[in-house]
Amino acid sequence: MTSTDSSPAAARADRPRRGHPSRGAPLPLLVPALVGLAFLLLPLLALLVRAPWRSLPSELTSPEVWQALRLSLVTATLATAVSLALGVPLAWLLARTDFPGRALVRALVTLPLVLPPVVGGVALLLALGRNGVVGQWLDAWFGITLPFTTAGVVVAEAFVAMPFLVISVEGTLRAADPRFEEAATTLGASRFTAFRRVTLPLIAPGIAAGAVLAWARALGEFGATITFAGNFPGRTQTMPLAVYLALQNDPAAAIALSLVLLVVSVAVLAGLRDRWMTTS
């Protein structure tokens, strides 16, 4: 593209791209940035320093660790899928339609973010538990009880993780030009087709970012999970639960487990980032 071309189509592509060489960051930004980075990384570094490297191999060969890790990955992925399936339409509703009380609905959507996860778990029990407001009917009509099941883990994780996705996708939708949808409509696309074939691809990076956030949150989810789904190895004991319980009497094992969780999540996130986020 030439710099003399001033058409908007070209101008839009002129957005700053990642990886541009910076001309030296100003000190008032650089210093707090580095302090912030250190603040975030120091605890992780401490974990590495104090890790029981000698006993690590034996800690990690226990089948329970792999069981918990596998369960964590599966449930976090499923919770992300649930969040995507429900959260993206919800984000669209919040960003693109106008209805009375929308501001309130948006605030309510973010409620799980501020709710202590344990309280979230109790709330889920009260709603979807065997004796819950809705759960009793699920039990009576379909024989479905969510607590103490893997499905319950997914529900708890999705409950906590979905707001991240909704907020992220809604922000992207708001930033996206709604006129693309209008353009699609004038070409004969129904509103849903316009969303599916135009909006969705346009906001894909935002959705991916939201999904990654949600996945990470679901992977680390502890309070709501243990409260709603309980803790049973292989069924509802995810890594964070295993870590927490190991911490009770064997901190070394807990550190080892945490390291596994960290390594796996960093690997997955880095992998996804390369795949999804650099193609835009």
Partner: peptide, 12 residues
């Protein structure tokens, strides 16, 4: 069905 994290959780 579950090994709870503490006694209060079990009771709850």
């Amino acid at each position: 069905v579950s090994y709870e994290q503490d006694v209060k959780s079990a009771l709850t």
